[in-house]
Design a protein around this nucleic acid. Sequence first.
DNA 1: ACGATCAGCGCG
DNA 2: AAACGTGCTGATCGT
Length: 854
Amino acid sequence: VTMSSFFKKNAVSKSNCPRCGLGSHCSAPRMKVAGKGGQRILVIGDSPSALDDDKGAFYRDSTGRRLKQELRHLGISLRDDCWYVPAVRCRPALNSKGEAGEVSTAHITNCRPYIQGIIKELRPEKILLLGETALHSYYDDRNKQCTSMFKMAGMQIWDSTYNTWVFPIWSTALIEKKKHDTLLFSEYKRCLKRAIHTEVQPFEKKWNPTYKLRNFKKAIKALTNCLRNDTLIAIDYETTGLDMYKAGHSTASFAWANDEGSWAVPVQHPYWNPKQQEEIYALVQKILKKRKIKKIVQGINFEYPWTKQQMKAEPRGFIWDTQLATHIIDNRTGVTGLKFQCFVRWGIEDYDKISGKYIKSNSKTGFNDMLKMPVDALLEYNALDSLYTYELYKEQQEQLVGTELDAYHFMHNGAIVMCEMSFNGIRIKESFYLKQKKLLEQERDDLIDLINTSDEATQYTRQRGGNFDYNSPKDLQIMLFKVLKLKSRKETKTGHSVDAEVLQKIDIELTRNIIAVRKLNKMIGTYVDGFLKHTHDGMMHPSFSLARARSFRSSSQSPNFQNVPKRDPKAKRITRSGMVPRDGRVLGEMDFSGAEISTSCYYHKDPTFIKYQTEGGGDMHNDACSHILLNEKDTKMPKPLRQCTKGVWTFSQFYGSYYVSCAKQGWEEYPLCVEKDGSPCQVKGMDIGDWMKQKYGSYKGFENHLKKFQSIFWDEWFTVYTEWKDKVCRDYERDGFVETFLGFKFKGYMDSKQCTNYPIQGTSFHLLVYTAVQFLKECRKQGLETLIVGQVHDSLILDIPLEEIDDVKRILSTIVGNLHEVFKWMDFPMGLDLEISKSYEQGGSFASMEPLEL
DNA sequence: ACGATCAGCGCG
DNA sequence: AAACGTGCTGATCGT
């Protein structure tokens, strides 16, 4: 009787895990913790492999050997110094392909009690969570924000429940599986090294007291004292909602924290009578307006405009945003929340347990139940928020030094300008959108009728039962690939794709109608409705955040101002015509020409590339086009083909695409290129489609041609660019981060494309930030009334009084023209384009912008 | 009823 | 292995 058959026989009868059943097929179910734990390190891995199962113990496979080897390099023996255990103790069932199947949430949940039991029993000093299964096992029942290794890997987290330090680390099995990914491996080694080499002490922190100001006299005294004596405080509001421009909101309470403690006071709250409310409100206003009281906030995008709009106070001395600082320290997504920071830094869980349900706003009304919360809970929560913000600030002062601190200050100035432009807002003609909405809905409903009464819909109902929902990708998949028996050409994670590209290729009346309905629904739902929802008193205030994007770009929300249609003429007209200048003004838009292309040059310094990008260096897109279609250098190509090359080749390649994708796209798109009159583009006297067939024979021939061209492009044309890319990746492998000219550091796991794309994207945007900051400064200095009302990565949208157009032109030309003097790493100037609309009185709008001579 | 996730689609 | 980044909507699934 072999060991494995012995276990198989006994697996079910011995099981203590009746809910799971995973053990029933295993040779070695319910593996127990192993190792001697000499250094009190507990390693929690994912789950046993088939080989582990066969051998009857965890980490007996190549993954285990790899881990042992890496630990040995760090002077640690897995057997002697650690305890180790899989988070799911039975080998996962095989999937249909015979590979190790997925571990489910249920498996993790069922095994969790054992894991928690051994932690209590062993009381480890450090816990290494090796892989996502371990991460979920450890955190899912306590904190829903600790979800992915992309976000958590490399952190050092104090756990106040088990009094231990936790180190999430990439799964060793994943490292084994992705052997070729040297960048991931380097991250893995760094995480492991940090976990092993960090000397730990039990975490202790003494927290300042919180004061809940429920007595009016005491409240006045405390506020007055703050106003007179405080020079640095963290502030926080609890409010009835997030949309500060919507009527009917109130500031339920206000809290501030300093080195001694934190205080919270009801403000526009029925706890006080109206007269008391007035007095408190006035004092809070004075604190907000006093420049000498420096303020720290968590999320300036909210606190700053709320101060202006709801507290009717000019925000002064807002010197730090802990959210922005968190983002600068760690640019990975999902780390900036105060709750999350409290959890990972100080092991604080659930301080919003009571307040949580009151804070959640009703999705229809936009109001929450803040005023219904017991005052005591409200003040405690508010005080804690400001207290934690203050403590976070203090830790960030220690953490952010050198170039990263410079980067913070640069972004802080930018953030205030973003707040100002959001506060300014853009004028909206609501009547226009209301009217468009009706027209679009009519147009859509007619199409829906056609779809619902089509033969296909009848056939669908006859075959499958139920009605065909044109809007459901699931129904559409059934319709196209089951009922109509068409062949799927593109897959998604869970099924067959039915996106516009697929529908366009199928090209029957049904798919044409669905494409049209989708476009209309997008216009109605995302844009028209979105604009109306966020417009108050004829003004819309999109928010612009600098603390979200991994690339250190901005993002925009409520509504997103950065994705309003521009390429499709009809969509452009409908969505942009209702954005208009104020009385006696025009809308203006300045944008950098080829912002990211130029910025890439500042980094890679490729002479061939720079020559293209500067005066008289030829036209890169045309030359690539000529190579791709003719295999000739420098032949002048028809404009639409050149334009097509940008998307098919140049930009794709710069973002890291490769010849096969480019070939597929080019083989489809080039033949569709037409001249202005609608006739097919001509090459050597032939239609482009016919020419390509003749020249390359088949798709495969075209692909081979692009394979060769890719080598020419990167190894002959842009050798220096290629060398730069290699160096950036090597440096990241060595250092664990990539740094920009302005001191921003990209951290966490990145693949080679991200390593080289982020600095270009980020820096390009930062030139715009600088331009916006300088422009606002200059406008104020010169007493101009021009307003910045929006921003789209490489462009600024302005609302300009007619008489200031020339001033704006001059100021912008100066600032942008001098960028390369300010930033010495710019080898040549950034290009500038300017467009303006007609005045409001002449019907000008964001839909019709005309170039302005510079 | 509500959160999470996916697919789809808009922009630079 | 094979295109970077973002936000919003509606459908779907699970609690």
